[in-house]
Design a binder for these strands. Structure first.
Lengths: 146, 146
DNA sequence: ACACAAATTGAAAATGGTTATCAATATCAA
DNA sequence: TTGATATTGATAACCATTTTCAATTTGTGT
């Protein structure tokens, strides 16, 4: 992604016959500045600090839009709500998720990806996407009592 | 699991100081007779045919109970609602999920499991559970138009 | 067997994340 | 600038799942 995300978005919107709005650009900028794995609620709170006028629904809608545009990627973990991460052009990655503190660690493993393809082929299955999540305790939480 | 599931459940309930009820046994039996990857709603409909008196909430509650008892396993796919499969004593398995017809194929791959452990170890992460899902098109759906 | 405290049930209401509705407003091509 | 159309913000609606609560059932001790 060489050009600015907002430019990319504007382009996408134009192609789709949709409209570029200040809200969408603002939300996108906050989204990019914020950390990974944000929920819509979390993003909304961050957006509200800088741009109090922007509504809840608009954040939700924009997040879905960003996902369609390829600028964000939806991730549904087990904590009940949808999170979004910035789409990267580099390789797909998976997640280690701490069930105690919620920390999310990303990893990628070429070998696993390959074995997945083998499994798919064996079942005459054509993979579109996949999801690999390891739930457990991160290094810090392993020591904690309770 | 050598003994009857209902006996196993009764035992679990006794240990936990909970009570054995005809509803729970009936639901468990229907659950076992029914296919894998059932949603609460689907199970409720099956249960209602045989036992019209049993309520919606009881099915939900029993399903969670079965999961706690180790007789069922919760699975959250991307279709919005929670599904349950019978817990098996044999190895953990993962899923191939057709995004077109919804078919779910199970598989297991020792090699992948091993690599997951390697990844975890590298991140000083202690895995409790994991989830691997490959979304795509099953053999039948690959040929279909649209 | 019997009684009673505690768990369970069914029906309905509540919850909570997400989506739809709608009148007012902003965008953009002509 | 205009007008058709998309978007916005506030709020209501959705919908799977949970909770509530009075009535009922269960299991333990007597």
């Amino acid at each position: 992604m060489r050009k600015k995300p907002t430019e990319y978005l504007t382009e996408y919107l134009a192609v789709k016959g949709l409209k570029s709005t200040t809200q969408r650009d603002k939300i996108l900028n906050v989204f990019i500045a914020a950390g990974q794995h944000l929920s819509a609620e979390e993003l909304f709170l961050s957006v509200k600090k800088l741009h109090p006028g922007i509504g809840y629904a608009t954040v939700y809608r924009t997040l879905k839009l960003l996902a369609e545009a390829g600028l964000a990627q939806e991730q549904r973990f087990e904590d009940g709500f949808t999170r979004y991460e910035h789409a990267k052009t580099d390789a797909h990655h998976d997640h280690l998720i701490c069930t105690r503190c919620g920390t999310i660690i990303e990893f990628e493993n070429e070998r696993i990806e390959q074995l997945q393809q083998d499994v798919a082929k064996k079942n005459r299955f054509k993979v579109q996407t996949h999801k690999l999540e390891l739930y457990g305790l991160c290094a810090e939480c392993q020591g904690k009592k309770n």
